[in-house]
């Protein structure tokens, strides 16, 4: 089961300007084939479906614990999209066409379907699909798929970084490039233990260090790329049989930390958008609701 914490993995900057088309590009990192919804659901189903969990516990613990981290990544990318999706409409009566600028934006679902928030889909508006989940039941094949999936995700993050310089998007991508690098290495090490084959020799793919990216360097300096968390109070500790030795990218020791990362950021509090009727609760109605909420407490 899952326990939820009402915090983001990092503090996201929230400037008072947005870029709807940048938000549309960031959608690929959420609901694209290599987006966070895919990493989440791949590891989630693989952990549910894992055979011989006891015998192969370190591998089960790895896939199960990273599932929880991916949930936090879905949350982080969604919130990024929400913060970047501003500055296209204005507040006015419907007859003044306050959403008219939205006609020229790439993701019209953002304006028609989700009130300028995240969509469970990719940068072209295609819905995220369950057939992006690969859960073959063969341990080495699934690990190899995860290694490939994380490398694809890294490539897409690097390209979206090159598409937008919006500070919220770049902060999120900088952090996820580093965390994604951890997952690539974790699956490479798992494959090495399972098969004796050292895939770390081909890394990084693409052949470019995270430190090239301004917004990733800070997280590399903090050692964020050396740590794997258990994401649990008491479980999944056997990941330390896989996550050990040194990081080939920087020579620093690999560390397992029990639990979840410290710090993190506040969940952004989104303003109302009267032109989208969201949340659609005016002052009078709110007063009635507040009265009913406090009744018979």
């Amino acid at each position: 089961m899952f326990k939820r914490v009402n915090k983001l993995l990092i503090d996201l900057p929230a400037p008072e300007y947005g870029d709807a088309n940048a938000a549309a590009a960031v959608q690929e990192l959420l609901g694209g084939k290599f987006g966070e919804m895919s990493t989440l659901n791949n590891y989630m189903y693989q952990s549910f479906n894992f055979r011989q969990k006891h015998k192969l516990k370190p591998f089960y613990d790895l896939v199960a614990s990273i599932t929880a981290e991916e949930f936090g990544h879905v949350e982080l990318v969604s919130n990024t999209i929400n913060l970047v999706s501003k500055g296209t409409s204005f507040t006015a009566e419907p007859d003044l066409t306050p959403l008219h600028n939205a006609k020229d934006m790439r993701n019209t679902y953002s304006f028609i379907a989700t009130a300028q928030t995240s969509l469970a889909g990719d940068s072209m508006g295609n819905a995220w699909r369950g057939d992006y989940v690969f859960s073959s039941g063969n341990l080495v094949l699934d690990l190899l798929h995860n290694f490939f999936l994380e490398i694809g995700a890294r490539t897409h993050k690097m390209r979206v970084y090159e598409m937008t310089d919006h500070p919220t998007a770049r902060e999120m991508i900088g952090y996820l490039l580093v965390r994604g690098g951890v997952h690539i290495l974790a699956y490479a090490k798992a494959i090495e233990i399972a098969t004796g084959t050292d895939l770390t020799k081909m890394l990084p793919i693409p052949n470019m260090d995270n430190r090239v990216f301004d917004h990733a360097r800070k997280y590399e300096d903090q050692g964020v790329g050396n740590v794997l968390f258990t994401w649990s109070d008491n479980d999944y500790k056997d990941i330390n049989q896989i996550w050990k030795g040194t990081n080939p990218a920087n020579g620093q020791p690999l560390i397992v930390k029990e639990g979840i990362p410290e710090g993190g950021g506040e969940i952004p509090n989104l303003n109302d958008l009267p032109e989208e009727f969201a949340p659609g609760i005016d002052r009078d109605l709110y007063e009635q609701i507040a009265k009913r909420l406090k009744e018979n407490m």
Binding site: G87, T88, S89, F90, A92, N101
Partner: peptide, 11 residues
Amino acid sequence: ITVQTTKNPVQ
């Protein structure tokens, strides 16, 4: 005020 610029509306 609301200002429609050549890029985005600003309110």
